[in-house]
């Protein structure tokens, strides 16, 4: 049992990385009152941009992940133009972004179908990695896994302890009030949308340059939508989002170890687990309307014209 448990728990960290980045990005965006349902599309744009940059430069994920972040932020600005500048329906604009992103990434990806990348070697932290059980699980991960923990700490701290965090949350609660005081609501929301795009881009680029590492059409496979659901599950709190991401990371990784654990179930059923789990989690969190309403940014999804 234990010999299976270590790789499952170690794998959970990697599987959770895309959900952490995409989820934290969407969390920040939603905290400012903007719901961007285009996470899936932004992830795919990030995945192909990262893969293309890594393949063309030959430098791997070190170039691929920043490129994915840039591409994700760039495509998020298109969403921003329609949903913020024109104040069009945010949920529908997100859907348009996802359809567009699936199409564009598949279009560009046609060139890169037979490429493969070297991936990233794990960073083995001396001494700590020698701790039995815990060492191989936590301290033999790739750089992006450690980066995801850093991103969590930075975002949680910014939202809870800084002026910027207070401003972001204030805009999400009442854009009218923030506007009246003189804050540029639309510009700040643009910033949050671009940040969410960059984070989704990193999530996608991690999939294509580290996790898999090759380009497959539609390779995010709904992770962007799961990230959106995780933000609801987390009640817009970063720490709970991390918990959700690891939970889903474990569910995702379980399918690769099911056989070793003696679970004889068709692969397709195991592959369906993350989606079924998402539905279950949504049901549990939505049952009590008050819990949801307590933390919901008051202006979420509502168009704002100053």
């Amino acid at each position: 049992m234990i010999e299976h448990l270590i790789p499952i728990l170690a794998g959970t960290f990697g599987a959770a990385v895309p959900l952490i980045f995409a989820g934290l990005g969407e969390l920040v965006t939603e905290r400012t009152g903007v719901i961007n349902l285009g996470v899936e599309g932004m992830m795919l744009i990030g995945a192909i941009a990262g893969f293309a940059a890594a393949a063309e430069t030959g430098s791997g994920a070190a170039v691929g992940i920043p490129a994915g972040a840039l591409a994700g932020a760039g495509i998020a600005l298109v969403f921003g133009f329609f949903a913020l500048s024109l104040a069009a329906n945010q949920a529908a604009c997100g859907l348009a972004l996802t359809i567009f992103g699936i199409g564009l990434s598949a279009f560009i990806g046609q060139h890169y179908i037979s490429y493969s990348l070297p991936g990233l070697k794990p960073i083995i932290i001396p001494l700590l990695s020698d701790i039995p059980v815990l060492g191989p699980i936590v301290f033999k991960q790739d750089a992006v896994v450690y980066l995801s923990l850093l991103a969590f700490a930075a975002i949680a701290w910014t939202l809870a302890k800084t002026r910027l965090g207070l401003l972001l949350k204030a805009i999400g609660e009442s854009p009218e009030a923030a506007h009246a005081i003189g804050y540029p609501v639309i510009s700040i929301r643009f910033g949050a949308v671009a940040f969410g795009g960059a984070m989704a881009g990193i999530a996608g680029a991690y999939l294509s340059t580290v996790y898999t590492p090759l380009w497959v059409q539609n390779m995010s496979a709904g992770r962007g939508w799961i990230a959106v659901a995780l933000v609801v599950f987390a009640s817009w709190k970063p720490a709970r989002l991390m918990l959700g991401a690891y939970l889903f990371g474990a569910v995702t990784i379980l399918q690769f170890h099911a056989q070793g654990l003696g679970i004889i179930v068709p692969v397709q059923f195991l592959a369906s687990l993350p989606y079924v789990a998402t539905i279950i989690v949504l049901v549990i969190i939505s049952r009590d309307r008050r819990v949801l309403q307590n933390n919901l940014p008051a202006s979420l999804g509502k168009p704002f014209l100053p």
Binding site: V78, L97, G101, G103, L104, Q110
Partner: peptide
């Protein structure tokens, strides 16, 4: 896949 690009643009 260009079909998807056009679909997304149209909705936007």
């Amino acid at each position: 896949a260009i079909t998807g690009i056009f679909q997304g643009m149209l909705l936007f």
